[in-house]
Amino acid sequence: MNNIIPRTNHFIWIRYLAAFSIVFSHSKQFDTAPQSYIDVVGTLTWFVPGVPILFFISGFLISLSSSNSQSLTAFFVKRILRVYPPLWASFSVSVVLIFSLGMVELHGDDWLKFLMWSIGQVTVVFFYHPDFLSHVGTGVLNGSLWVIPVILQFYLGLPLLRKLDNYWIGKGKSHYIYLLLVVCALFNMVFHYFNNFTPNVYTKIIHFLTLLPWLFFFLLGYIFSRDYGRLKRLTTYASPWLVLHVALFCTLGALGFKWGRNDINPILFTVLAFSIVSIAFKVPSNLSWFNRIEKFIAKNDISFGLFVYQMVMLNTIMYLGIFDDNWLARLLTFLLATITVASLSLILLEKPLRNKRDWFIKVLSRNKEPQQKNKAV
């Protein structure tokens, strides 16, 4: 069976769609957002759930990256250079803003809290939200970063998943990966039911600190990547899947089921996943200008930066009271500030570091060689 995945795809547009879904969803947290805007954006962002879509795309594309990487070292270097430079830049921007604008005045134990918060923001402890920032905007300067540890857990677990899957394939039981997907889907539904109706400290820990509720989306992306040759016959046309997605979306909503955003029903999301893949591998356009624009945007992808910087910009605008009497101007300022900072981060930091990717891989691989030789001796 031909399982060659075309190199040309349109995932970049879907990444931006998901990123802007998250940005607009969070824009509802502005204290001056009109109810009409909240209602419209709330419905649209439930229809296009940004976080699950990004998890699915990550599962698909990172699986390919793992397959194409020459070693685990190369794989992890690529992932670190993708995730951490914008996070560190975002932290630097946050520190400059909170001190230059007088957002905080630290006294006594506050400096220890600031140190703990700083260490967390540049590593993986994004759930620590000190009280000295509680008066700034929403009270959490960059609350969106809870997804980073979830993504990192998938990166770390992917090599183990591939080994397990290859073991099953070797035993002639390749379908076991689908059974695992069903288990993850059931866990997803049961967990979100309890988290929505009887939340407690344990559900919050599982939700914000573990991969478990989100593994379904990553695993679904992994399966689409693994079995693309088998599934591509079902993704020739996007329209039927989009129509089915809309129908299910409306039906589940009318029946009162929890059907959107981060806790989207796995059945509904599976239909959406077929739509995503259908669009991503649609035949390239014959319009040369469109293809040039697509290549330029793909080379200068700020979708992750939009996600990383948006809450910092939102909270800063709220703190300063920028255009608090003009909603449209405030929204446009928020979007422009987020896009500008994400673009500068890409140009000044992220791309230069990624251009040194091969150098990092070579240095780290060279450091491992003496260890391997010593073990052989």
Rank of each mutant, 00 (worst) to 15 (best):
G42M: 04
K232W: 08
H207M: 12
M103S: 05
L106S: 05
K282R: 14
P86R: 00
N262G: 14
Y228K: 03
H245F: 13
S69F: 01
L306A: 08
F224K: 00
I322K: 07
I264Q: 13
L244Y: 08
L115N: 12
M116N: 12
V124C: 11
K78M: 12
G143H: 08
I361P: 00
P149I: 07
Y178L: 08
G321N: 09
L54Y: 13
W214Y: 15
R7H: 10
S285Y: 05
N291P: 05
S365E: 15
G221S: 04
D301L: 02
K78T: 12
P149N: 05
F274S: 00
K299I: 04
T123F: 05
S65L: 11
I293V: 10
Y228L: 04
S285A: 05
E350C: 00
H135S: 08
F75C: 11
G157K: 04
Y237I: 14
S92P: 03
H245Q: 14
D325I: 10
P370S: 05
G305V: 01
P34N: 06
S288N: 10
T203H: 04
A185V: 07
R357A: 11
Y228H: 08
Y167W: 13
L115F: 13
T45N: 01
Y228A: 03
A329G: 08
F56M: 04
N196M: 13
G260M: 02
I5G: 02
S239V: 15
N262T: 15
L209C: 11
T210E: 01
L179I: 14
P284R: 04
T210M: 00
Q29E: 11
V312D: 03
S92W: 00
V277N: 02
S239E: 15
A329H: 10
L353G: 02
K173G: 05
W168S: 09
K362I: 08
I317A: 01
V277G: 03
T235H: 03
I361Y: 03
L17A: 14
F99I: 13
V23Q: 06
D131A: 15
N291Y: 05
W327M: 01
V377W: 14
I169G: 07
L242G: 14
Q29N: 10
M103P: 03
V104A: 05
T270Y: 01
I12L: 03
T236Y: 14
L141K: 02
D263P: 08
A18E: 04
F334Q: 05
Y193L: 13
V271Q: 07
S345H: 00
V246M: 12
S25V: 10
M313S: 09
L215Y: 09
G170Q: 08
F290Y: 13
S275T: 15
L44R: 03
T32H: 09
L287E: 11
L346N: 00
Q121Y: 09
V243E: 08
I317C: 00
P199N: 15
V150Q: 04
I80G: 09
A376E: 14
K362V: 10
R357P: 07
W168N: 06
F55I: 03
W327R: 01
G221M: 02
N68S: 15
G120K: 04
V283N: 12
G157E: 04
N195E: 11
H207Q: 14
Q371N: 12
I302N: 01
L335G: 04
I317Q: 00
R7N: 11
V283W: 07
V243R: 09
V77Q: 02
Y16T: 06
S285K: 06
